[in-house]
Protein backbone atom coordinates (compact mmCIF):
# COMPACT_ATOMS: atom_id res chain seq x y z
CA UNK A 1 0.00 0.00 0.00
CA UNK A 2 1.86 3.00 -1.29
CA UNK A 3 0.67 6.49 -0.33
CA UNK A 4 2.37 9.82 0.21
CA UNK A 5 3.71 11.82 3.14
CA UNK A 6 4.13 15.61 3.19
CA UNK A 7 7.48 16.54 4.68
CA UNK A 8 6.28 20.12 5.27
CA UNK A 9 3.26 19.43 7.48
CA UNK A 10 3.83 15.75 8.34
CA UNK A 11 0.45 14.55 7.07
CA UNK A 12 0.12 11.08 5.49
CA UNK A 13 -2.12 10.48 2.46
CA UNK A 14 -3.72 7.35 1.18
CA UNK A 15 -4.66 7.17 -1.65
CA UNK A 16 -1.53 9.03 -2.77
CA UNK A 17 -1.89 12.70 -3.66
CA UNK A 18 0.62 14.68 -5.67
CA UNK A 19 -0.46 17.97 -4.05
CA UNK A 20 -0.68 18.37 -0.26
CA UNK A 21 -4.12 19.88 0.47
CA UNK A 22 -2.72 21.52 3.63
CA UNK A 23 0.37 23.09 2.09
CA UNK A 24 -0.65 23.13 -1.59
CA UNK A 25 2.33 24.46 -3.58
CA UNK A 26 4.65 24.67 -0.56
CA UNK A 27 4.20 20.99 0.30
CA UNK A 28 6.98 18.45 -0.19
CA UNK A 29 5.54 15.04 -0.99
CA UNK A 30 7.39 11.76 -0.70
CA UNK A 31 6.28 8.15 -1.19
CA UNK A 32 5.26 6.28 1.93
CA UNK A 33 4.62 2.57 2.39
CA UNK A 34 1.71 2.02 4.78
CA UNK A 35 1.68 -0.86 7.24
CA UNK A 36 -1.95 -1.54 6.31
CA UNK A 37 -3.15 -1.98 9.88
CA UNK A 38 -5.97 0.19 11.15
CA UNK A 39 -9.31 0.56 12.88
CA UNK A 40 -12.88 0.33 11.57
CA UNK A 41 -14.58 3.75 11.81
CA UNK A 42 -17.91 2.58 10.39
CA UNK A 43 -19.12 -0.28 8.22
CA UNK A 44 -21.99 -1.90 6.38
CA UNK A 45 -22.79 -5.31 5.00
CA UNK A 46 -23.90 -5.16 1.38
CA UNK A 47 -26.73 -7.47 0.33
CA UNK A 48 -27.55 -5.83 -2.99
CA UNK A 49 -24.54 -4.97 -5.11
CA UNK A 50 -23.58 -3.77 -8.56
CA UNK A 51 -23.18 -6.48 -11.20
CA UNK A 52 -19.44 -6.82 -10.70
CA UNK A 53 -19.87 -7.65 -7.02
CA UNK A 54 -23.10 -9.69 -7.09
CA UNK A 55 -21.29 -13.00 -6.55
CA UNK A 56 -19.68 -11.70 -3.35
CA UNK A 57 -22.84 -10.74 -1.46
CA UNK A 58 -23.18 -10.45 1.42
CA UNK A 59 -19.86 -8.68 1.90
CA UNK A 60 -18.63 -6.11 4.41
CA UNK A 61 -17.47 -2.65 3.44
CA UNK A 62 -15.85 -0.32 5.95
CA UNK A 63 -14.22 3.04 6.34
CA UNK A 64 -10.90 2.23 7.95
CA UNK A 65 -8.52 4.63 9.62
CA UNK A 66 -4.95 3.51 9.00
CA UNK A 67 -2.60 3.73 11.98
CA UNK A 68 -0.68 6.52 10.18
CA UNK A 69 -3.88 8.61 10.03
CA UNK A 70 -5.58 8.55 6.63
CA UNK A 71 -8.96 6.94 6.09
CA UNK A 72 -9.97 4.70 3.21
CA UNK A 73 -12.83 2.51 2.04
CA UNK A 74 -12.23 -1.23 1.81
CA UNK A 75 -13.75 -4.64 2.22
CA UNK A 76 -13.37 -6.58 5.45
CA UNK A 77 -13.37 -10.34 4.94
CA UNK A 78 -15.19 -11.94 7.84
CA UNK A 79 -18.72 -12.96 8.63
CA UNK A 80 -21.06 -9.96 9.06
CA UNK A 81 -21.84 -10.73 12.71
CA UNK A 82 -18.16 -10.28 13.61
CA UNK A 83 -18.07 -6.69 12.34
CA UNK A 84 -17.76 -3.97 15.00
CA UNK A 85 -17.03 -0.26 15.06
CA UNK A 86 -13.55 0.11 16.52
CA UNK A 87 -12.33 -3.36 15.52
CA UNK A 88 -8.68 -3.70 14.55
CA UNK A 89 -7.91 -4.90 11.03
CA UNK A 90 -4.88 -6.13 9.10
CA UNK A 91 -4.30 -6.18 5.33
CA UNK A 92 -4.87 -9.28 3.18
CA UNK A 93 -4.08 -9.73 -0.50
CA UNK A 94 -7.19 -10.56 -2.54
CA UNK A 95 -8.80 -10.40 -5.95
CA UNK A 96 -10.58 -7.03 -6.14
CA UNK A 97 -12.39 -7.60 -9.42
CA UNK A 98 -12.33 -9.19 -12.83
CA UNK A 99 -13.16 -7.76 -16.23
CA UNK A 100 -15.58 -10.54 -17.07
CA UNK A 101 -14.40 -14.01 -18.10
CA UNK A 102 -11.78 -12.79 -20.56
CA UNK A 103 -10.41 -9.57 -19.10
CA UNK A 104 -7.79 -8.55 -16.59
CA UNK A 105 -7.97 -9.67 -12.95
CA UNK A 106 -7.44 -6.88 -10.39
CA UNK A 107 -5.58 -7.68 -7.20
CA UNK A 108 -5.03 -5.59 -4.11
CA UNK A 109 -5.69 -5.03 -0.46
CA UNK A 110 -8.72 -6.01 1.53
CA UNK A 111 -8.78 -6.25 5.30
CA UNK A 112 -9.38 -8.99 7.85
CA UNK A 113 -10.00 -8.80 11.60
CA UNK A 114 -6.65 -8.56 13.39
CA UNK A 115 -7.86 -11.14 15.89
CA UNK A 116 -8.30 -13.68 13.07
CA UNK A 117 -4.57 -13.59 12.30
CA UNK A 118 -3.01 -17.06 12.35
Amino acid sequence: MIGTHCKSCGEYYFPPRTLCPNCRRTGQMEEHKFRGTGTVITYTTIYSATEDFERLTPYNLAIIQLDEGPKLTGQVVCSPENMKIGMRVRPVFRILGKEGERGIIYYGTKFAPAEDAP
Binding site: T42, Y43, T44, I46, L61, L72
Partner: peptide, 19 residues
Amino acid sequence: WECFFGATFPALYAMIARL
Protein backbone atom coordinates in the same frame (compact mmCIF):
# COMPACT_ATOMS: atom_id res chain seq x y z
CA TRP B 1 -11.18 4.57 -4.29
CA GLU B 2 -14.76 3.62 -3.31
CA CYS B 3 -16.58 1.74 -6.10
CA PHE B 4 -13.51 -0.25 -7.11
CA PHE B 5 -13.61 -1.81 -3.63
CA GLY B 6 -17.30 -2.67 -3.88
CA ALA B 7 -19.00 0.50 -2.59
CA THR B 8 -22.56 1.20 -3.68
CA PHE B 9 -24.60 4.29 -2.88
CA PRO B 10 -26.75 2.60 -0.26
CA ALA B 11 -23.52 1.27 1.29
CA LEU B 12 -22.03 4.74 1.69
CA TYR B 13 -25.21 6.09 3.31
CA ALA B 14 -25.45 2.92 5.42
CA MET B 15 -21.99 3.65 6.81
CA ILE B 16 -23.11 7.20 7.62
CA ALA B 17 -26.26 5.83 9.26
CA ARG B 18 -24.38 3.33 11.40
CA LEU B 19 -22.00 5.98 12.71
